[in-house]
Amino acid sequence: MGLLSILRKLKSTPDQEVRILLLGLDNGGKTTLLKQLASEDISHITPTQGFNIKSVQSQGFKLNVWDIGGQRKIRPYWRNYFENTDLLIYVIDSADRKRFEETGQELAELLDEEKLSGVPVLIFANKQDLLTAAPASEIAEGLNLHTIRDRVWQIQPCSALTSEGVQDGMNWVCKSVNAKRK
């Protein structure tokens, strides 16, 4: 490919828009993750009533990330945001063992949704900075992730607070979206 055609290609493909849904139980760290992705201050976060949305540029993509509140009362609204989703990020508080069952159920229900069929899913095993956090492998086992066969998936240990592991997860996101679009 000559230089000119590369330039032409660059010019003709403005950032591709990607719709990402950020879901999980309340207090999982979705908003902290969203703000971390957008390089914003994370010290004054409050519980999400409704949703937040931010656009982040990454590796030639314009990621439109929808962070939907996780409290039980508004989970019925999640489905209103499923349409045209390119990728699902599911956030788990790795230190909140008492709610592993609940979070597993919610995830299983999401994976059963017709509108989300085949949509790649990244599971962030968040809060790895806490001493009591369960390792990602334990969570993967507990959630029976190995039984997922209808889509690509990945579990990524991270700390939205320190941002450790977040970039690795986002690299997987871009890779998966690329593969899906080809």
């Binding site: 309340d26 207090n27 010290s43 976060i45 409050t46 519980p47 409290q71 039980r72 009362k73």
Partner: peptide, 18 residues
């Protein structure tokens, strides 16, 4: 606790950044 508008069973996680 949901009856006065906290998210879950224990309000302690809702205070967060404030």
């Amino acid at each position: 606790w949901g009856n006065i508008g906290f998210q879950g069973d224990d309000p302690k996680t809702d205070f967060r950044g404030m």
